[in-house]
């Protein structure tokens, strides 16, 4: 069995709710806090065990503030997956999200990109309107190779767990062959516990 670690990075404008997503996923809590992330924050969580071994997500929650933009590169370098977030009610955060996507496409070809609309509860409960229409969204998604688009709410918890689990699962599906090969190697070298380090740092 091997420990599979999926390096996942969260990107997006300040205040779109990246930290809240992580807290919902890790602690299953929503805390309304107006403290911006400074630099980056790292957390890892086991998501499930696959036939190859335990799968955990290693998540970098980055700071969306402009002043940290120059250090963000370090956080998404070699990421297996990226969750690019935008606030479902905020057009500005959407255009910034597109900026992140093109940056990732430029520097991290292998990174699987997910789009995440946050604060869905605002639409449902406060009857706010969506900043991006369905048409624009689907046209964009098909044009830039986005793996999947999620609509989440950290407040209600809707779709948060599903999103992270999907990411882990996609990673396994994509790298099945590598794992199988690796397992064989391990069997022959008689090592029972090994950490899988494909593409991870």
């Amino acid at each position: 069995m091997i420990n599979i670690k999926v390096k996942t990075v969260l990107l997006g404008n300040s205040k779109v709710g990246k930290t809240s997503l992580v807290r919902r996923f890790i602690e299953n809590k929503f805390i309304d806090s107006d403290v911006s992330t400074i630099g980056g924050a790292f957390v890892s969580k086991e998501v499930f065990s696959s036939s190859y071994g335990e799968v955990s997500l290693c998540i970098w929650d980055t700071a969306g503030e402009e002043k940290y933009e120059s250090v963000t590169r370090a956080f998404y370098r070699n990421a297996n997956a990226a969750i690019v977030c935008y606030d479902v009610t905020c057009a500005k955060s959407w255009s910034r999200a597109k900026g992140w996507v093109s940056k990732l496409r430029q520097f991290e070809e292998k990174c699987v990109i997910y789009l995440c609309a946050t604060k869905l509860d605002l639409i449902k409960e406060m009857s706010a309107s969506k900043a991006v229409s369905e048409d624009v969204l689907s046209a964009y998604i098909s044009s830039v190779n986005i793996k999947q688009h999620f609509e989440t709410s950290s407040k209600s918890g809707e779709n948060v767990d599903i999103m992270f689990k999907t990411i882990a699962n996609d990673y396994i599906q994509l790298n099945k062959e590598n794992f199988a090969e690796y397992e064989n190697l391990c069997l022959t070298s008689n090592d029972s516990e090994k950490t899988c380090c494909f593409k991870f740092f």
Binding site: T19, V22, R23, I38, G39, A41, V43
Partner: peptide, 16 residues
Amino acid sequence: LVSSSQSFRTAEGWTP
């Protein structure tokens, strides 16, 4: 810095 950022309780911060 520490007292005004609750998020260090959940995640490891890497902060300039």
